[in-house]
Design a protein around this nucleic acid. Structure first.
Length: 260
DNA sequence: ATGCCGCCGATTCGGCGA
């Protein structure tokens, strides 16, 4: 069995003790991190090595940044960044082959405030992502695209659709761009296994959102048909959101059977 | 209508996030 997890860590250095703890307790085969918020030379790769994880990462000064860690095997990088916009310098995408699976780690733009240039950037980024995912699909390989999508797919995926109605995360254009990925043949594993909704992966630090369980589901794992056939289970490590100095996101994960 | 909280990087505060 192979376990692939995604975790928006909100600062890999500020969160390092929590992150190492989570790796030791849940021991994912592959851990995809978003918002590492550091430059490449500041990434604490040696701390992960001590736990047996080898990593690749795509950092940036101050914000964004993504990484892929693998337990006992070095991820083989396929690429970083999305094609289609030479002006885009945000570190939001890294892709690798590991354990016989193509793994893409994404940190999709938030897009607030909307309307505006940041929302336009989000929608363009989603089209560029769709193009890359179509290329991966054409390879007909087991693949997962996991991370912070910054999209609330359905009203059942948010504590209060009314409170969030003006937010970029649940605008019809954001949802439509997300639904196109599903229409292309990708499976939202956690959505599939929780059809009634009510499962959150993010709780704001502000206004007592965690204590009130005011969250929403924006971290997703999308599986190619070749990998969806092997889906065993999936979940959210909600308890880790309750800890001291926690990220505002909880980790998400999928377990897939070994190739036949 | 806005801030709440928290990171980062630069200097006592702004940018950014969701």
């Amino acid at each position: 069995m192979i376990k692939v997890a995604g975790f928006n860590i909100n600062g890999v250095r500020a969160r390092l003790p929590r992150l190492l703890e989570w790796l030791e307790e849940t021991r994912p085969s592959v851990a995809c991190l978003q918002e590492i918020k550091c430059q490449d030379d500041a990434f604490p790769a040696n701390e992960f090595e001590k736990l047996g994880y080898k990593a690749i990462w795509h950092g940036q000064k101050g914000f964004n940044g993504v990484a892929i860690l693998a337990d006992g095997e070095a991820p083989v990088e396929v690429g970083r960044g999305l094609a289609g916009d030479p002006e885009d310098e945000h570190s939001r995408y890294i892709e690798a082959d590991v354990f016989g699976i193509r793994v893409s780690c994404i940190y999709l733009p938030n897009g607030n405030p909307q309307p505006g240039p940041k929302f336009d950037y989000k929608l363009r980024w989603m089209e560029r992502l769709r193009d890359r995912m179509a290329e991966i699909s054409a390879e007909e390989i087991p693949a997962v695209v996991i991370g912070d999508y910054n999209v609330i797919p359905f009203d059942r995926d948010v504590w209060s659709p009314a409170a969030m109605s003006g937010d970029a995360l649940m605008q019809p254009a954001s949802r439509d761009a997300y639904f196109r990925l599903l229409a292309d043949g990708w499976t939202d594993a956690i959505g599939l296994h929780n059809p009634r909704g009510g499962v959150w992966t993010y709780w704001d630090y502000q206004a007592g959102a965690w204590q009130r369980d005011h969250g929403f589901r924006i971290d997703h794992a999308l599986l190619s048909p070749e990998l969806a056939d092997r889906l065993d289970s999936c979940g959210v490590d909600k308890a880790h959101r309750a800890r001291e100095k926690a990220s505002d996101h909880a980790p998400v994960w999928v377990r897939v059977r070994d190739a036949a």
